[in-house]
């Protein structure tokens, strides 16, 4: 299996480009977040024209009739909001370039593009960014349907920040040259097990960030003096909580499937379906933590902040599993190049 160096180089260029685009998108999100109005202000401002409208048609508007000779420009959206819109389009662009980078890597080596830690980390980040875009898409549909205000876009920067860090780590410390797979990975299970692991890790990372934001927001809601600048601009705690919970609930069966598919593969490749390999053990630990999260939400006294902390603990377990276990501890999941 020869490696196509041209495609591999293009893939690396696309990877670097996508990281740059994500950084730009992140700055745009933060721009909207920092200069946008807090939610309380939004409510006040939007209330004003509504009252003016109901006050009467002719009498109130009459003094504001355009003066002859003055060209009325249509009212523009405030510029922080435009920054937000740009941020979303930039994210979409970044995700496209990022997907192209993975695709090119796959074409260059004629195999799945998640055969080593660099590719795996990159694919997980793509999954998380796509999860974020799906959330935005669903929200924009809901906005059109129920006329509820867009609330979540402000999270964008906080979602992209860890992604940019992870991508940077993958592209530098974990980077591996394009190469064919080692024999243990040459199985169709790499399509099934690893893609399930990638998608579920990505979405769970996203859910963890949402829970983290929830904890911050609750601190602010309990005492508006705390985290006044940050907390006031975050979406309402209920929205964040629901976001984290839905993401976890949707992906939990996939994560379970990923572990079980791994066990089925291990039975064929390593001679046993479960061997307490460090990676297997930590994946199970993370699974148990997420199970605890789901149970906590059904237990009185554990809902809300406590449950959110459990979800954050799950995020820590996933990151630990992703990096520490693969890099520091020798096990069967330690891949070539590290």
């Amino acid at each position: 299996m020869p490696v196509n160096q041209v495609l591999s180089t293009y893939s690396d260029m696309a990877f670097a480009t996508s990281v740059a685009i994500y950084i730009l998108a992140m700055l745009l999100y933060f721009g909207e977040f920092a200069y946008g109005r807090t939610r309380a202000e939004v409510r006040e401002r939007t209330a004003e024209p509504a009252m003016a409208g109901t006050g009467g048609t002719g009498s109130v508007d009459a003094p504001q009739q355009p003066v002859v000779g003055r060209i009325e420009t249509p009212s523009k959206r405030p510029w922080p909001e435009r920054l937000g819109g740009m941020a979303v389009s930039t994210t979409v662009l970044g995700a496209l370039v990022h997907a192209a980078s993975l695709l090119l890597r796959g074409l260059a080596v004629e195999r799945v593009p998640w055969g080593n830690m660099y590719e795996f980390g990159s694919a997980i980040c793509l999954a998380a960014v796509l999860a974020w875009l799906v959330v935005l898409l669903r929200q924009s549909r809901a906005v059109r349907r129920d006329a509820t205000p867009a609330q979540l876009r402000g999270l964008g920067g906080f979602v992209l920040l860890p992604m940019v860090l992870l991508l940077f780590l993958s592209g530098t410390v974990l980077y591996a040259e394009a190469a064919p797979l080692q024999p243990a990975l040459q199985s169709y299970w790499i399509w099934i097990h690893v893609s399930a692991a990638v998608v579920s890790s990505g979405v769970l990372l996203f859910a963890g960030v949402a829970s983290l934001m929830f904890v911050l927001r609750v601190r602010h809601e309990n005492n508006p003096l705390k985290l006044a600048r940050l907390g006031g601009r975050l979406p309402a705690s209920q929205v964040l909580d629901r976001l984290a919970y839905r993401a976890t609930v949707v992906i939990m069966p996939v994560w379970t499937f990923a572990i079980i598919a791994g066990a089925i593969w291990a039975e064929a490749a390593w001679g046993r379906f479960w061997g307490w390999d460090p990676k297997e053990t930590t994946a199970l630990v993370a699974w148990i933590i997420y199970a605890a999260y789901l149970h906590a939400r059904a237990t009185s006294g554990w809902r809300g902040v406590r449950a959110a902390w459990i979800n954050i603990l799950g995020l820590v377990a996933m990151l630990f599993n992703l990096f520490f276990i693969n890099i520091v501890i020798t096990g069967l999941h330690s891949y070539a190049g590290l």
Binding site: W276, P278, K279, T281, T282, L284, V285, I288, I289, A292, A317, I325, I329
Partner: peptide
């Protein structure tokens, strides 16, 4: 979860 951790570390 806690008890399984030393098994990995």
């Amino acid at each position: 979860a806690l008890a399984a951790l030393p098994g990995a570390l």
